[in-house]
Design a protein around this nucleic acid. Structure first.
Lengths: 190, 190, 190, 190
DNA sequence: CATGAATGAGCCTTCATTCAT
DNA sequence: TATGAATGAAGGCTCATTCAT
């Protein structure tokens, strides 16, 4: 499904993220989006079958991108805590750099659109941290609890941290990210 | 002369929470709500001036209720950690028991309705934890960091915990709530 | 159809005139009217069967009042021009004093309510000036033209004059009313 | 790519005038208008942002048209009375020919819509007659009174005349229009 | 007489989507 | 591919009026 004007598709995605950031998924209007992109509303339908498809497609794109990055990050070989901290920093950096994308994901996840997204896509990313946790527990560095709980706590900590950064309460420098990691580590370490 | 049924107002609130849980704030339709309550759409307008007023009013009601409860909980006199754990349990219990209300609050907070709510109402609750944190830091029991960061972390932990409970990953019993409190305490303790 | 509280009926009429002056017949709302009167909307329906009846009834009342006054004014015995000027002054005074009523009449006359008013009531007043015109033409003091044209011109002049008075461009004193009568007299005199 | 039919806009205007003539501004319903035009209600909103805009736009259009015509009429060079009579005839003809437009103007002028129309637009037309009156007074042909009073009297005479024509009491021929002008001239001449 | 509560009918407006070019 | 025009479906809200007390 390659289009002549692939850059236009990227622009549509970008403006969608902008608008969702400003007015929420529910507030996303096709007409306004088109205007923002600089095309006619009907042209949107050349690129996406309908509004659902637009949102689902962007959602999927972002997930894929995230997965790609996550996979890369795991192939390092460091002491466990350091390794986790490194990954933590990368995630955090990613979250902050791509906060429009993150915002989009969260909004969609708690909107009625979620039901229209193939569950497979949503859960795909999950598997990634499994080995990470397994190792941590084997080395008795992490509390021995359910992976899902760990995932939730880390995810939640990640979200808080990036929100604080975006709200300029803390920054993305070593000192502050380490501080936030300390909270996390203290919480989950054995 | 018929008397306005205060229970009807409560029913409207209840059904609103239900619908928002199911379909989001953006998906809340006055007609559907009315049907759910068992009244005519126009009757809704007898109780609330318009949709905005309905949402804002419920939002405010919940905040007030929360504030009331929080205030009560602070007037205990126990060792700091125990005290915090007690409050934690109460908050958690509240969050789980009233998860429809909590869901409503969160949804509204990241919807365009937020801008229509007097800021005073939103920030009112904030101040409550201040003294709690102050004492914790004075006794060198809590890490010495910004209150807002502490608030964020606790709030986030509370949310994760109640979500896990609602998803039946953990339960509201002493063992599990203590476990979740341990995460929190380890994260913020000095 | 006498009601115990006749004063309340008068109040309803008065407030109706006020509201119609402010917001037009089309803008007249039963609920607002009731509020203005200080009663419940349903109480309005004790006094008038419905909105149409309310408007028609007030319209009719005013016409009757006008007719009564007009009749009195004709039984004088003066030189024709003086007599006409006297009547003119009385009409003008009436129009200005009762400008809320006049406004109501005009608004109703060019609203859809007009069709619901028995034609007999509307035309009733017409006949009054007939003898006046007849005499004027017999004495060759008035241009010899159709009564309806005369009526229209006088009515229109009356309206202009009272509007100018209400807008404070002229006043109700002898000098100004005489001036306006001069315009009229010059227009219709032979 | 379909081209927006300018004739459709004209049709909307025309049907609006028709409906306002029949049922008043207050009785103008978007759905009925659309039906009359032969389009869908939502299509109306392609041409006008909303009902207010529709009414205001038409109002403004008419005023502009009137102003254009009035301006043309003033550039003639005749004896004063003849000139005035010529203008009078043109105005009268305009009023009668465009009586739907005139009706629309009047209705809007005494409706709540008036407040939404830029005052500049309303008063623009006023200035036109000024020089006409000035000349008339300088040549001592007109009574020396306030321009606003003159304007009111002429306007009122114009209205009466066109109403009589429309009601078929008189016609637009030379004899009758001259007669009506005679009333006016006698009223305002020195 | 009086009225608080409730409602049905109706209106304006928005918006995703289609259609013809 | 691109788009201007058109629209059906739906939603929010108003308001005269009725009903039960």
């Amino acid at each position: 499904m390659k289009f002549k004007d692939e850059s236009k598709r990227l622009l549509i995605i970008d403006k969608t993220l902008d608008l969702v950031l400003l007015e929420g998924v529910a507030g996303l209007k096709m007409a306004k989006l088109a205007k923002e992109v600089g095309i006619s509303p009907s042209t949107l339908y050349v690129y996406y079958k309908n509004k659902d498809a637009l949102i689902i497609s962007i959602f999927t794109d972002i997930i894929k991108e995230q997965t790609k990055i996550s996979k890369k990050q795991l192939n390092t070989d460091l002491a466990y805590k350091i390794k986790l901290k490194t990954i933590w920093r990368q995630w955090l950096k990613f979250s902050v750099t791509n906060f429009k994308e993150m915002n989009f994901m969260e909004q969609v996840k708690q909107s009625p659109y979620l039901e229209k997204i193939p569950t497979q896509i949503i859960t795909e990313k999950q598997g990634l941290s499994d080995t990470l946790f397994k190792v941590g527990k084997e080395q008795e560095l992490l509390k021995n609890i359910d992976d899902e709980i760990l995932t939730s706590i880390i995810g939640s900590m990640l979200k808080v941290s990036s929100e604080l950064i975006i709200k300029n309460k803390i920054s993305l420098n070593k000192k502050d990210t380490d501080m936030m990691f300390a909270f996390l580590w203290d919480a989950i370490k054995n």
